[in-house]
């Protein structure tokens, strides 16, 4: 029984990391019309920033804050210089971002080599309750993810900015008539999603060592979560993340371990066939605006 409970706890932890990444992607992919496949590299840079700060004596919290700031700034610079030129043709953004993946990876490698980087665990304790082991750092990640989800959700559904954003997504021209500076909102969402990637990177390196190459694996899962949940739908991303996390945990625990990824992908395909708009519905994604 403890084994099963342990697997449930494991799933929650797996899910929280995926959700953190998925929210950034669903917002950007669903609401701004920008396709950025280098989102995984943003996460990697967030992790590397945290590592840099910590390995030079800074605390983990400082490192995480730096990760959020650095990647948010990176998002701002790239959006202003590159991605905003692709808003009429989102596919160009996709191609550009593929090139960006290589550029970002190699810039990092050039200055900090391609070896694995690690930091000492910010929270080292492990609690044992009835045979189930709960790792403090993982619980912290779940908590942080929950906070981020709450903030994002309420910002979008209750705040003036969220209202203007939803209006811009629904009808860009009419929103502009109301005085909404739509381009600035696109930049804002892109920065927010990028900052979340930075935070995700800090969480990731807090949990395990990273290399400059972790981006590609992560980004696929993030896009999967965004698509399954419904593009632009925060609640959808949470639900999709939980479903995938559970699938991962249980299939690894009780299915054929080599097929862990296959089970998740099979589930995704099934969901998208039955509900192409995602579990909770969302936008149609990037289109020429």
């Amino acid at each position: 029984m403890e084994i099963f409970l342990q697997q449930l706890i494991n799933s929650l932890s797996v899910a929280s990391v995926i959700i953190l990444i998925g929210i950034g992607i669903t917002l950007i992919f669903g609401l701004t019309g920008i396709i950025n496949f280098a989102h995984g590299e943003f996460l990697m840079i967030g992790g590397m920033t945290t590592w840099l700060v910590v390995s030079h004596g800074g605390g983990f919290l400082l490192g995480a804050a730096a990760a959020v700031a650095v990647v948010g700034a990176l998002g701002f610079v790239l959006e202003r210089s590159l991605f905003r030129l692709t808003l009429d043709r989102p596919m160009n953004g996709f191609i550009i971002s593929l090139g960006l993946i290589v550029v970002l990876q190699h810039v990092v490698i050039r200055f900090w080599n391609s070896y694995q980087k690690a930091i000492p665990q910010p929270l080292a304790s492990v609690w044992e309750i009835g045979g189930v082991r709960i790792v403090a750092m993982r619980a912290a990640v779940v908590l942080i993810t929950a906070v981020v989800v709450a903030i994002t959700f309420f910002a979008i559904s209750r705040s003036r900015y969220g209202l203007a954003l939803r209006a811009s997504v629904a009808d860009q021209e009419t929103a502009a008539l109301m005085g909404v500076p739509v381009r600035r909102y696109i930049t804002g969402v892109f920065i927010y999603g990028s900052a979340l990637a930075g935070l995700g990177g800090a969480m990731m390196i807090a949990l395990f060592p990273i290399t400059p190459f972790i981006g590609s694996v992560i980004v696929v899962r993030g896009f999967a979560v965004a698509l399954i949940g419904g593009l632009g739908n925060v609640a959808g991303a949470v639900l999709a993340g939980l479903v995938l996390g559970l699938m991962d945990g249980l299939s690894a625990g009780y299915g054929l371990p080599e097929w862990t990824e296959a089970y998740s992908f099979a589930l995704m395909i099934l969901i998208l066939l039955l509900r192409p708009q995602g579990l909770l519905g969302g936008t149609a994604g990037p289109k020429a605006i």
Partner: peptide
């Protein structure tokens, strides 16, 4: 136990 090469979270397999 054979795992997919891109695995980063081993906790489910380790619990198994």
């Amino acid at each position: 136990i054979k795992y997919p090469p891109s695995t980063t979270d081993f906790t489910p397999l380790l619990t198994r």
